[in-house]
Deep mutational scan, measured.
Amino acid sequence: GATAVSEWTEYKTADGKTYYYNNRTLESTWEKPQELK
Protein backbone atom coordinates (compact mmCIF):
# COMPACT_ATOMS: atom_id res chain seq x y z
CA GLY A 1 0.00 0.00 0.00
CA ALA A 2 0.91 3.66 0.01
CA THR A 3 3.33 4.87 2.63
CA ALA A 4 3.73 8.23 4.34
CA VAL A 5 7.52 8.15 4.20
CA SER A 6 7.62 10.16 0.97
CA GLU A 7 6.08 13.16 2.75
CA TRP A 8 9.28 13.65 4.75
CA THR A 9 12.48 15.01 3.29
CA GLU A 10 15.76 15.04 5.19
CA TYR A 11 17.80 18.24 5.09
CA LYS A 12 21.03 19.41 6.64
CA THR A 13 21.58 22.89 8.00
CA ALA A 14 24.72 24.91 7.26
CA ASP A 15 26.31 23.64 10.48
CA GLY A 16 25.60 20.02 9.66
CA LYS A 17 22.53 19.36 11.80
CA THR A 18 19.85 17.17 10.28
CA TYR A 19 16.19 18.08 10.26
CA TYR A 20 13.08 16.75 8.55
CA TYR A 21 10.45 18.59 6.56
CA ASN A 22 6.99 17.29 5.71
CA ASN A 23 5.84 18.39 2.27
CA ARG A 24 2.19 17.69 3.03
CA THR A 25 1.76 19.32 6.44
CA LEU A 26 4.57 21.88 5.98
CA GLU A 27 5.86 20.75 9.36
CA SER A 28 9.56 20.61 10.18
CA THR A 29 11.15 18.77 13.07
CA TRP A 30 14.54 17.98 14.57
CA GLU A 31 13.26 14.59 15.70
CA LYS A 32 13.20 11.72 13.25
CA PRO A 33 9.53 11.30 12.29
CA GLN A 34 7.72 8.11 13.32
CA GLU A 35 7.22 7.27 9.65
CA LEU A 36 10.98 7.02 9.13
CA LYS A 37 11.75 4.79 12.11
Rank of each mutant, 00 (worst) to 15 (best):
A2W: 05
K32T: 10
P33K: 01
K12P: 03
G16P: 00
T9A: 10
K32I: 11
T13V: 02
A14T: 09
E10G: 01
N22D: 02
K32R: 09
K12R: 13
S28A: 11
N22E: 01
N22F: 00
E31F: 07
D15A: 06
A14G: 07
L36F: 12
L36H: 09
E10L: 04
E35Y: 07
K17L: 10
T29I: 08
R24M: 11
T13E: 03
W8A: 00
Y21V: 15
K12D: 03
A4M: 14
E10W: 04
T25E: 01
Y20F: 06
K12S: 07
Q34T: 11
A2G: 13
P33I: 03
Y21D: 02
E27P: 00
K32D: 05
A4R: 12
T29D: 02
A2D: 13
A14D: 10
G1H: 14
L36I: 09
E10Y: 03
W8V: 01
L26N: 15
P33D: 03
K37G: 15
G1S: 11
Y21T: 07
T13F: 03
T9G: 07
T9E: 10
D15R: 04
T25W: 02
E10Q: 05
Q34I: 12
Q34Y: 09
A2Y: 08
D15G: 08
K32Q: 11
G16F: 01
L26Y: 11
G16Q: 02
G1K: 11
K12G: 03
N23F: 09
L36M: 10
E35G: 10
N23L: 07
R24Q: 10
A14Q: 09
E27S: 03
A2M: 13
Y20N: 00
K32E: 09
S6A: 11
E7Y: 06
E27L: 05
T29G: 03
P33S: 01
V5D: 12
E31D: 10
T13G: 09
T29W: 05
K17S: 06
N22M: 00
E27W: 01
E27R: 04
N22W: 01
G16Y: 01
K37Q: 15
T3Q: 14
T9M: 12
D15V: 03
K12M: 11
W8P: 00
V5N: 12
W8Y: 03
N23D: 07
E31Q: 08
E35M: 05
Q34V: 13
W8R: 00
T13R: 03
P33Q: 02
K17A: 06
Q34W: 09
G16T: 00
N22H: 02
K17Y: 07
G1R: 12
G16S: 02
G1Y: 09
L26R: 15
T29V: 12
E35D: 12
A4W: 05
L36N: 08
Y21I: 12
